[in-house]
């Protein structure tokens, strides 16, 4: 029950916390933490302007993306060991749902007929081409020596255990790979600047330039929900064992991740577009490393 409430009400708080930490770093007051909620409420009351060259995909894309991401979120453990839904091998479904959400938005971007959105779509897909295999490799590696389990149990099985050096290393490695994936998926610095006003440099924002009103509100919510999914995976991975205070630690870790995103955004410049691809290969290499190590461990048995 509680995770469902969290899935509905928590996502919009995440960009608010990131913006607040950026504002504190900059030495100004900044927006309120609840500003994304006010923004959402305002957008609900606006009309929609749809371009005459757009087809039906533009209209249905935000709804499909939202639905896919919501269902995917139901399989993610959030602070408790169990997720709302779960079955053996459900991580494949989660991956495909997230890919569906992204794919439909990319199609809608190309549907609009604007050259910027086409460029943004191609950049987006070039990153996805590397990140999805990395995600799949990591999760496959984690179930290598067990039977096919649900995502929640995989994560809790491999979450940090301070008594075993091996689990410490693997959890940290996987968390860092997921962190880089989070930065790419959430369109944060150093991959993309969420506040940029330069349409030639945008990756994610350029795909939503043509949306307004209710569709735009849904898109903001979906993006925040995707951020919550990745942050939850990282947090759950770093919760030691079956701790009694797991939910509390979950929220603390969530908060720390958001503040760290704000810090990275304030202190680092954005990468050149061709360097982005280099960095996106890091999760791939980490996943290969983890996979190889887990196989070796099973075969070598230490």
């Amino acid at each position: 029950m509680i995770p469902i409430v969290m899935i509905i009400f928590l996502p919009l708080l995440l960009p608010g916390i990131i913006n607040r930490s950026k504002a504190i770093m900059a030495g100004r007051k900044g927006q309120s933490i609840f500003q994304p909620y006010y923004h959402f409420a305002k957008l609900l009351g606006k009309d929609e302007v749809v371009s005459s060259t757009a087809g039906f995909i533009t209209r249905i894309a935000p709804l499909i993306a939202l639905a896919a991401t919501l269902v995917a979120a139901l399989f993610i453990p959030m602070g408790w060991q169990k997720s709302v839904l779960g079955f053996g091998g459900d991580f494949v479904l989660v991956l495909y749902l997230l890919a569906l959400a992204k794919g439909i938005m990319v199609l809608a971007a190309m549907d609009s007929g604007s050259s910027f959105e086409g460029m943004g779509a191609s950049r987006e897909l070039s990153f996805t081409a590397f990140l999805e295999p990395a995600f799949m490799l990591i999760l496959s590696a984690l179930i290598y020596n067990g039977s096919l389990q649900s995502l929640a149990s995989i994560i809790s099985w491999h979450s940090i255990n301070f008594h075993e050096v091996w689990s410490l290393i693997s959890a940290l490695l996987i968390a860092s790979a997921l962190y880089i994936m989070l930065l790419v998926e959430a369109a944060r610095v150093p991959f993309d600047d969420p506040n940029t006003h330069l349409e030639l440099t945008m990756i994610h924002e350029v795909m939503i330039l043509d949306y307004s009103g209710f569709s735009l509100a849904l898109i903001h919510y979906t993006a925040a929900l995707k951020m919550l999914i990745y942050c939850s995976l990282i947090s759950n991975l770093l919760i030691p064992g079956s701790f009694f205070w797991a939910p509390l630690i979950y929220f603390v870790l969530l908060f720390c991740q958001l503040v760290s995103i704000g810090l990275v955004e304030s202190l680092m410049a954005r990468f050149r577009m061709n360097r982005n691809l280099e960095l996106v290969l890091v999760p791939v290499s980490i996943s290969l490393l983890v996979m190889a190590a887990l196989i070796a461990r099973t075969l070598g048995g230490w």
Binding site: K29, Q31, H39, T196, H197, E199, L209, Y211, L216
Partner: peptide, 12 residues
């Protein structure tokens, strides 16, 4: 801080 921002697209 008052919720006013300059946005990139007229649709927003």
């Amino acid at each position: 801080r008052y919720g006013i921002e300059v946005v990139a697209s007229p649709r927003h």
